[in-house]
């Protein structure tokens, strides 16, 4: 009885506020077409998908696509690369962003600090294809800036584009170049929020500056750091397609050290015959990624209700 009236009230509320609800309709439509319809496409992972027959005409094959993928060793390698790169990016990125933020706030506001600040966030606005092109000027075999330097220093040149071993550190450094300066801004905002009186008191007590950093700034930033770290851990299964594809491309020499789930799927989509197999891999990534994000958010919400995303 009460459920019926409840439902009734719900409909009445929608009718009453219809003009406000209507405003959300275009966004709902875009969401349905471009996000929810593709979700129905996960069914392809269980089919021997034939593009001509379509989603409803293709043959169902159960878990065959998954069996095939998990029987080989590719999935282990690309999963490892995906997680490894994300972890390295998060750890190095957090450390450098934090260091920059602490240093810049310690130095106070002056022309030098302002200039450094403007310059260090510039790379954040540059797209990955452009960065890919920039990287060529550094890594090209004989004309590249790095080999010129090695040559001048009397060292042997490195043939970057046939040498898989050098790419993990390169990707980490390029990621730092693009993201660390911008990341520092978030931490600077948090540091500015710390009570100035704490520093005043420490100064009057004669504490040196590095002690203020380690006894006041960093301990008070701990919850911000933990929270951002946790939330980025949720995305550890996410792709870095734009970055890796821009820097490495379809250079098969380098797959051994750089191939991730995203680049694997992107390549398979353009070259391989089996869309069903490719979808199985993408679904594996989506499901694990989903579980990780939800778990990270749950833990974050437990630690601090304010900073949970939802």
């Amino acid at each position: 009885m009460s459920r019926i009236t409840n439902k009734h009230r719900g409909i009445r509320e929608i009718v009453h506020n219809r003009s406000l609800y209507l405003l959300a309709v275009p966004a709902v439509l875009f969401s349905v077409v471009f996000s929810y319809l593709p979700m129905a496409g996960v069914a392809i992972a269980f089919q021997d998908f034939n593009p001509l027959a379509g989603l409803f005409g293709s043959e169902w094959v159960g878990l065959d696509n998954f069996r095939f993928f998990f029987r080989g060793s590719d999935w282990l390698i690309i999963t490892f690369h995906t997680v490894f790169f994300n972890l390295m990016f998060i750890i190095t990125g957090t450390a450098l962003a934090l260091a920059l933020a602490v240093m810049l706030t310690e130095l106070g506001r002056n022309a030098v600090v302002r200039t450094v600040q403007s310059v260090m966030i510039l790379p954040n606005f540059i797209s990955w294809p452009i960065i890919g092109l920039f990287s060529v000027t550094f890594f090209t075999a004989d004309t590249g800036a790095i080999n010129q330097f090695l040559h001048a220093a009397g060292l042997a040149p490195i043939d970057f584009y046939t040498e898989p071993g050098v790419w993990p550190p390169i990707l980490v450094l390029v990621n730092l170049w693009k993201t660390a300066g911008f990341g520092a801004i978030v931490y600077m905002a948090a540091i500015v929020g710390i009570d100035r009186e704490l520093y005043e008191a420490a100064r009057i007590a004669g504490a040196p500056r590095f002690q203020c950093i380690f006894r006041i700034t960093l301990p008070l930033l701990k919850s911000t750091i933990v929270m951002l770290f946790l939330l980025s851990l949720g995305n550890i299964f996410g792709g870095n397609l734009e970055m890796i594809y821009s820097l490495v491309g379809d250079n098969s020499f380098l797959f051994g050290s750089t191939d991730t789930i995203d680049t694997y799927v992107f390549r398979a989509l353009r070259t391989s015959g089996s869309l069903g197999m490719t979808q199985a891999i993408a679904l594996y990534q989506s499901v694990v990624g989903f579980l990780l994000v939800v778990t990270a958010n749950k833990i974050a919400a437990k630690l601090d209700r304010e900073s949970a995303l939802f």
């Binding site: 471009f34 996000s35 319809l37 593709p38 979700m39 129905a40 496409g41 996960v42 392809i44 593009p51 989603l55 799927v265 992107f266 989509l269 869309l275 490719t278 979808q279 993408a282 679904l283 990534q285 989506s286 990624g289 989903f290």
Partner: peptide, 11 residues
């Protein structure tokens, strides 16, 4: 959660 590149491509 995303349906993945393959279903977006087919859609």
């Amino acid at each position: 959660f995303s349906g993945g590149m393959v279903s977006s491509y087919i859609l």
